[in-house]
């Protein structure tokens, strides 16, 4: 059953079309990812789904409720971690959670227990009485995830949950998020512009300039760019090439003393190839396509196109130096 259903969603701000005819569905209990560069329209889509923004046209449903007409029902069904922190820094971790529990009408006799549970869940129980302003970025993020879970939401939105975290905290948070659907019977809708992060998703929609340009499982998307590439170094490249082309019908090329070929599932191909030309093999390496390759192929640019602003800064510094 689809727990999120979006049909031809459009959101125009005065001169920009932030979301341009977007449609998709999300299965209950899965992790669905929106992958796209800055300004792609990810946050705008989330804001519409969580009833904070009215779309220009199109429809959106969560758990069967219309996001525009039945906002109260939708709000009860969702939890959200916004892109920017929305904690009250002058309250303690626990007070922030209690505030949330009251807003969502969690039963009084269950409230304390539930708040303690989610605090333990994100490993912040020992810091529960500290003011949030004393927390690190990663702790604040975890606290927000905990807060989003308090009222047993059916869908949890995570808008760039690892924003501003160091690689280790990012990994920790992802391990934690990946387990959420199974442990808590919740569906996750997340956005990111990190390729590696999108890999935890069951399904991904790649969004650019307000439009979904590709959708599928990470595997499907990567296969669409042509699958894995196997590089083999042998004692006799020419005969190995012939043999492989004859037996496997692969298109084999040679470059820098290596032969290479594209195949759907590299990890199962390699043993078969070794079995046939094993005695000639010196080394083998497998290169998997990344989602970046997918994005590159579809748009002709890499997803983290931050070099432009990087160049702007370099240009500025150069010009500044000349003047002084």
């Amino acid at each position: 059953m689809s727990i999120i259903k979006v049909e031809n969603l459009v959101k125009r701000f005065s001169d920009i079309t932030a979301v341009n005819d977007v449609s998709f569905e999300v299965e209950e209990g899965t992790i669905f990812g929106f992958l796209g560069p800055n300004g792609a329209g990810k946050t705008t889509t989330i804001n519409i789904l969580c009833t904070l923004l009215a779309p220009t046209s199109g429809k959106a449903f969560i758990a069967g409720h219309d996001c525009i007409k039945e906002s109260a029902e939708v709000r009860k069904a969702i939890g959200i971690v916004f892109q920017d922190t929305t904690l009250d820094k002058d309250l303690t971790a626990r007070e922030n959670l209690i505030f949330h529990a009251y807003l969502y009408n969690v039963a009084k006799d269950k409230m304390q227990q539930r708040v303690d549970d989610v605090l333990r869940f994100v490993d912040l129980y020992s810091r529960k009485d500290d003011l949030v302003k004393k927390f690190s970025g990663g702790m604040k993020r975890r606290l927000e995830v905990a807060r989003g879970m308090i009222h047993w939401p059916r869908v949890l939105f995570l808008d760039e949950p690892t924003l501003g975290l160091d690689p280790q905290s990012r990994t920790n948070l992802w391990e934690f998020i990946a387990e959420l659907p199974e442990k808590n019977k919740v569906t996750i809708f997340m956005t990111t512009h990190y390729m590696e992060e999108a890999e935890v998703c069951d399904r991904i929609a790649i969004i650019d300039n307000g439009k979904i340009i590709a959708m599928g499982t990470p595997e499907e998307l990567k296969k669409a760019v042509g699958g894995d590439v196997i590089y083999i170094k042998t004692t006799d490249n020419a005969s190995a090439k012939n043999e492989i082309e004859r037996l496997f019908k692969f298109n084999v090329s040679e470059k820098e003393n290596e032969i290479y070929m594209t195949c759907g599932m590299g990890d199962t191909c390699i043993p078969e190839i070794i079995n046939t030309i094993g005695e000639k093999v010196i080394s083998v390496r497998l290169q998997r396509p990344t989602l970046n390759d997918v994005f590159l192929k579809l748009t002709g640019k890499t997803i983290r196109e931050e070099t432009s602003s990087g160049n702007d800064i370099k240009d500025f510094v150069r010009a500044y130096r000349k003047r002084h």
Binding site: L52, F82, T86, L87, L103
Partner: peptide, 12 residues
């Protein structure tokens, strides 16, 4: 500081 969003998105 964003806290208003936490209130606005609640079923209240």
């Amino acid at each position: 500081f964003g806290f208003m969003k936490e209130i606005l998105v609640a079923p209240v």
